[in-house]
Structure formats: C-alpha cells, structure tokens
Simulated assay, not measured.
Amino acid sequence: MILTQENRILDHHQILQKIKRMAFEIFENNFEENKMVLAGIHENGYLLAQLLQQELKQISAIEVKLLKVTLHKTDPLAHDFLIEPALDTLADTTVVLVDDVLNTGKTLAYTLRSFLEKECKKLEIATLINRHHTLYPISSTYTGYSLATTLREHIRVVLAESEWNAYLI
C-alpha cells in the first residue's frame, strides 16, 4: 500500500474541519443534555473521540466523558471485548460511538449490545468517513466525509503525530 498525495482524500486541516463540524452537529442534536459519553473504537476511533471531546468542551457546557472500546475487528466473537473505564450503567446518558471508517458496519454492530445492556438513553454513531458498503443495519448519525467506493478500494486513516491524512487505496 503506497500512500501518496494522489490518493489522499483528506489532509490534516480537512480532518480538523470535519471533526469541528461533527462536534457542532452532536451539540445541536443533544443541546438539552447535561452529560454524554463518547465511546471511541480503539485505535483511530478513540483518537477521534478525544478530538470531538475537545471540540465539544469549547462549544458547550455538556459534561463529556470518554470511553475506549477495544475489540478484535475481524473476529470479535473469538476475542475479548473491553470498555475502559468500566461502567455499571449509562442510564439517562447519550452515547456516541466513534470510529474512523464505516464500511460494512460489523465493528459497530458488535459494540451496540454492550451499550444497550447499560441502558443508555440514546445511542448514536459518528464516523469520520462513510463508505456506504454496510452489510449490517448500521448507519452513521454524524459523518465527516461521505465517499462512494468500490468493494476493492479501501480507506486508510492515519492519525499519527507527524501525519493526519485519509487515503483511498
């Protein structure tokens, strides 16, 4: 996989713009809430959740807690599923699941049960990029960038210290 300027679809500045817009949308749809949880799928989803949390703190008074969701993306049933920090309940709490790319919806579908068991008030999904190839009944409530791709194409989001880019490969 060669990542080049030619196959870059979002650069650092554009990713920040998408995150800021998504934060405003989350706030607009939840402005009456006192608290909310952003649950980021490890690794890039969690980084995006951290960035969304920072933006939400700048524009609202909503208390925003952060959770890290760790699961095996290709074989989730055969491996441990972990939510950190562990919570007993999410009653009266809006939860926004955050991931970098929505492709088939499998990863997000496997996370839903854990949050529904905690009796959350509302469950929404935020993704930086939506590819529109869902095989599961999952749709993103908040999308930074919507991109129709072929099944053979892939999206790679890089959120490293020295580079923030999204590539179509």
Rank of each mutant, 00 (worst) to 15 (best):
I2M: 14
I2Y: 11
L3T: 07
T4M: 09
Q5N: 10
E6Q: 11
N7V: 02
I9L: 01
L10V: 02
D11W: 04
H12T: 11
H12Y: 13
H13A: 15
Q17N: 10
K18S: 10
K18P: 07
K20V: 02
K20R: 07
F27N: 07
N29H: 15
N29V: 07
N29I: 04
N29M: 12
F31A: 13
F31G: 04
E33Y: 08
K35F: 13
V37K: 07
L38E: 05
G45L: 12
Y46R: 06
L48H: 05
L48R: 03
A49C: 10
Q50L: 12
L51M: 15
L52R: 02
Q54M: 14
E55A: 10
A61N: 13
I62G: 06
E63Y: 09
E63P: 10
V64P: 07
V64D: 00
L66W: 08
L67F: 06
V69Y: 06
T70W: 08
T70L: 12
T70C: 10
H72L: 11
K73R: 15
T74E: 15
D75M: 15
F81E: 01
I83Q: 00
A91P: 11
T94R: 12
T94C: 14
T94F: 12
V95L: 12
L97F: 11
V98L: 03
D100W: 09
N103W: 04
N103C: 03
T104H: 04
A109M: 15
T111P: 08
R113C: 14
R113A: 15
K118H: 08
K118Y: 06
K121A: 12
K122I: 05
K122M: 12
L123C: 11
E124C: 13
T127C: 10
P137V: 02
S139N: 08
S139C: 07
S140T: 01
S140E: 00
T141I: 04
T141G: 04
Y142M: 04
T143S: 09
T143Q: 06
G144M: 01
G144L: 00
G144Y: 00
A148L: 05
T149I: 01
L151D: 03
R152P: 05
E153R: 01
E153S: 01
R156W: 06
V158G: 05
L159Y: 09
L159C: 08
L159H: 07
L159S: 07
S162F: 13
